[in-house]
Design a protein around this nucleic acid. Structure first.
Ligand code: ZN
Ligand code: ZN
Ligand code: ZN
Ligand code: ZN
Lengths: 136, 136
DNA sequence: TATAATTCCTCTAGCCACTAGAGCTTCAAG
DNA sequence: CTTGAAGCTCTAGTGGCTAGAGGAATTATA
């Protein structure tokens, strides 16, 4: 049996975050000590590790809810898991694409030879999207 | 003089967002009609366009506050503007790097030949970071 | 000019995924 | 048995908006 602090140390999930996941229904309410403190089992530990890793990989809490549900049903086909992952991959890729467009513009902007604000390329570009090379 | 709706159409910033920017102190409180409705000048329009474009480029509201302040002082050196932009560029680049690591892992994960959850690579990987190739 | 349609007003609350803090209780070591 | 760490609940704040209620003002049409 682990206290919430031990669980936190082992998973790297902060204590208030563990309680938040409980409130969100991602983890079951654990047993309590006589004095009402949470006591977790190994199952609780591995479930939280799953959540932690999924968050690290950028899945939303909603996605994780679905993935956890699936993981409780080993006999089911895994196509649902794949579509959650594929959708997430797409999201990540479109975020990357957007950030790369930003990166390009920001790199261009920061090549400013002027010394004062009146002629600064940064300020000028922010004031006028027409000076940009791409859409965003 | 523009109404808030006209300003919104010209800049592409939604009406509640304009009011939000006013509340946050990014734009001055505009004059009002006899019936208390906001009336904007061309100056208000260009200030809001500046904000819009800066947001599109991913700058935070705090950054924009600084950039707007600078843009009101054309005689100042533009080094402050450059450091805001450079910092932002760094942020963008580290976000890209992080997302690319995610992308790689997600691509790997989604190569699953199993048909059911019990043997699914997606679920297995989420349960065990040891199966990952990179840190995240 | 009367009425109808549209726009605008303020205020509050919700989104996501946490994070911080107040004020109190329980636990574990010595 | 005392003390200090760790736990409890509850509320509120983060960023950058967005939605909705309930009412007032403006504009367009008849
Ligand atoms: Zn410059
Ligand atoms: Zn632009
Ligand atoms: Zn699979
Ligand atoms: Zn991993």
């Amino acid at each position: 049996m682990f206290s919430i602090g031990q669980l936190s140390k082992r998973t790297g999930v902060k204590i208030p975050t563990i309680r938040y996941y409980e409130q969100m229904g991602l983890i079951d309410e654990p047993e309590r000590s006589e004095g009402n403190q949470r006591r977790y089992t190994k199952d609780g530990l591995s479930r939280l590790s799953f959540i932690r890793h999924s968050r690290d990989l950028g899945f939303s809490v909603e996605d994780i809810r679905g993935l956890l549900d699936l993981s409780q049903h080993p006999e089911k086909p895994c196509s649902d898991a794949h579509s959650i992952a594929a959708q997430h991959l797409q999201d990540v890729q479109s975020r990357i694409a957007k950030l790369r467009r930003l990166e390009r513009e920001l790199k261009r902007i920061t090549k400013c030879d002027a010394g004062n604000v009146a002629a600064c390329a940064v300020i000028e570009t922010l004031a006028d999207h027409g000076l940009c090379e791409t859409e965003h």
